[in-house]
């Protein structure tokens, strides 16, 4: 029920986002585009500019949400963020390094991807495979802090214009995202989503503690390793197309959990909520774009944080009534 509602909301905001911009389109305009294809009046606007950007938003939002849902369950902490794996900071370091070296466009995304892979390899080496949860978190946070410090160092020594570009990338943005980015994130998201759903049973059992999970026949170390790699791959793909958009991974999981009737991680729900936050944020970027296009990362925080606080407040006040 809750899930259907989110799907409907994503679809509605998706259409609205498609219609809004410097030129506002009616439903009929969009219908014409769908019917006549490249011959339609607004074809280029819809198909070449808006659709790839919004498709990227939905895909990256879903990837962030899904990665957040996996991390929260894996770390047995509803407020765990995928940033704690250190992958985001690794990706940022890679991307900022390339931006400061004067690169632009897809190469920067590639740098983010390489940084993310390096960070996760480092995490698995330093944490010794997939051991106890606390060691994993501490190692991840250590890597994250180190990579952020190095990023800060690079920024402080860089030339102002390039540092500005790098800062913009670090806020996370959907501006100027086209089909290559949309294809990349969806190409990564779909198989990773299927694998995550397949891994959800492991995730449920790992929440019972390592001993009990093992006693139920879950190969604990391998399961945790696979799930970490899944989350890391999702983050790497999303960060490389949008930059490290904050809060989506943190908020999607708890929001999905409180909307779902079942206990335990709701991975599909987290992915859907992540997608919804991201398109909503993109819509707000478009609506406020009178003078400048603000980066989407600003709105994900502005949107999601009050929502999360409201849900937590509602949950605690309900408990008190019971």
């Amino acid at each position: 029920m809750g899930r259907l509602l989110i799907v409907a909301a994503v679809a509605a905001v998706f259409l609205l986002d498609l219609a809004v911009g410097r030129i506002w389109l009616s439903l009929d305009d969009m219908w014409q585009v769908a019917r006549h294809g490249p011959g339609a009046e607004h074809w280029i606007l819809v198909y070449e500019l808006r659709l790839p950007r919004i498709a990227t938003a939905v895909g990256a939002g879903a990837a962030f949400g899904l990665a957040g849902g996996i991390c929260q369950s894996l770390f047995r902490n509803p407020l765990a963020a995928p940033e704690m794996l250190g992958v985001t900071a690794g990706a940022s370091l890679g991307a900022v390094g390339l931006v400061l070296a004067g690169f632009q466009g897809a190469v920067v995304g590639l740098g983010a991807g390489c940084g993310a892979i390096l960070a996760v390899v480092l995490l698995l080496i330093l944490a010794g495979g997939a051991p106890a949860v606390t060691r994993l978190i501490l190692t991840g946070v250590g890597i994250s802090l180190t990579a952020s410090a190095l990023t800060g160092l690079l920024l402080s020594r860089a030339d102002d214009a390039l540092a500005g570009d790098a800062m913009l990338w670090l806020t996370g943005s959907l501006n100027g995202r086209h089909w290559p980015q949309a294809r990349l994130i969806w190409g990564a998201l779909l198989p990773l989503l299927l694998l995550s759903v397949a891994g959800a049973r492991w995730l449920d059992r790992l929440e019972l503690g390592d001993d009990l999970a093992q006693s139920l026949g879950v190969p604990v170390r391998m399961a945790r390793m696979v799930l970490i790699l899944l989350a890391a791959a999702l983050i790497a793909a999303a960060v490389s197309v949008t930059g490290p958009v904050g809060f989506v991974g943190l908020m999607a999981g708890p929001i999905a959990r409180s909307l779902s009737r079942h206990s335990g991680p709701d991975l599909i729900g987290a992915a859907l909520v992540g997608a919804l936050i991201m398109v909503l944020a993109d819509l707000m970027v478009t609506l406020t774009a009178f003078r400048v296009l603000l980066p989407v990362g600003i709105f994900t925080g502005l949107l999601g944080a009050p929502w999360l606080i409201w849900l937590l407040w509602r949950d605690t006040s309900e408990r008190r009534v019971m």
Binding site: R76, D204, L208, G209, D211, L212, S215
Partner: peptide
Amino acid sequence: ALLPQAPLAP
């Protein structure tokens, strides 16, 4: 099967 001393309830 093993029931550990302090299992965690999700």
